[in-house]
């Protein structure tokens, strides 16, 4: 496993392939959009999806805490899928989260899904400032400097050998970074969506999450696309690709 390093407002930050951001100088770990209990929210609506999403998300969080041993964890909002989510946690999961929040200082940035303090130890806030960086749930339009946020669940699709690989991703430019969602059941919004593009008017880079590292692609005026040599291979994995037309 190796994290990519990046600079924002003069600070050196690490982008972890599990989707977290680490700030070594402050021993701070930021995670976003954990969406605890999204599974039981779906179940309430009639989709009885497997009930292990909170456990799976906690597993990721536990791995990250072991890996970086941070002093502070900043959860960038939408940590809980809805207002009732904390109350729906299974006893074992609630106990595990409580133990984490006891051992490390948590900052719960409030999001649109969880606008109220969650009832776990830690500071609840709409905005958290440390040095030159500001942590909030949703990126502010216009000129900012040193902003870290979540909310959009960015994902990017890269055409490779006639197929497309889609992964959650960080998006970064010299002014701000948007973090991917970590929750086990969270979907994503394509980086080409106008809502995301508007926040990066001069382009930026997407860092796609991989097993052991992140993969970096430019997003600029043009969508990130490999050169024609790659797409010309045509066809798809298991026959779902595109087929090039015949040469006249």
């Amino acid at each position: 496993m190796s994290a990519a390093t990046i600079h924002l407002a003069g600070e050196l930050l690490q982008l972890d392939p599990a989707g977290a951001l680490h700030w070594p100088a402050r021993r701070l770990l930021a995670v976003s959009d954990l969406h605890f209990e999204k599974g039981s929210a779906a179940a309430r609506q009639g989709s009885l999806v497997p009930p292990w999403d909170t456990r799976a998300t906690l597993d990721i969080l536990a791995t990250l805490l072991r890996r970086y041993r941070p002093q502070t964890v900043v959860a960038l909002g939408d940590s809980f899928h809805d207002i009732g989510a904390a109350a729906r946690l299974l006893a074992a999961d609630a106990e595990r989260l409580r133990a984490m929040a006891e051992a490390t200082a948590f900052v719960w940035v409030l999001g649109n899904h969880d606008p109220l303090p969650p009832g776990f130890r830690g500071e609840s806030t709409l905005e958290h400032r440390v040095g030159p960086l500001v942590f909030r749930h949703q990126a502010q339009p216009g000129r900012v400097m040193g902003e870290l946020s979540g909310h959009f669940h960015p994902k990017a699709s890269v055409p490779v050998r006639g197929t497309v690989v889609t992964r959650p991703c960080f998006i970064a430019d010299p002014r701000r970074i948007i973090l991917p969602a970590i929750g086990a059941y969270t979907g994503g919004l394509d980086v080409r969506d106008p809502a995301v593009r508007a926040l990066f008017p001069t382009g930026g880079r997407a860092f796609l999450l991989g097993q052991d590292r992140v993969f970096s692609f430019a997003i600029g005026a043009r969508p990130a696309m490999p050169p024609p040599a790659l797409t010309a291979l045509g066809g798809g994995p298991d026959n779902a690709g595109h087929i090039r037309g015949p040469k006249p």
């Binding site: 690989v165 692609f217 045509g234 298991d238």
Partner: peptide, 16 residues
Amino acid sequence: SVRSGLTDDDLLAEAE
């Protein structure tokens, strides 16, 4: 399509 035992991660690395 030309696939091999490459995983999606291998393909991303190659594209990158």
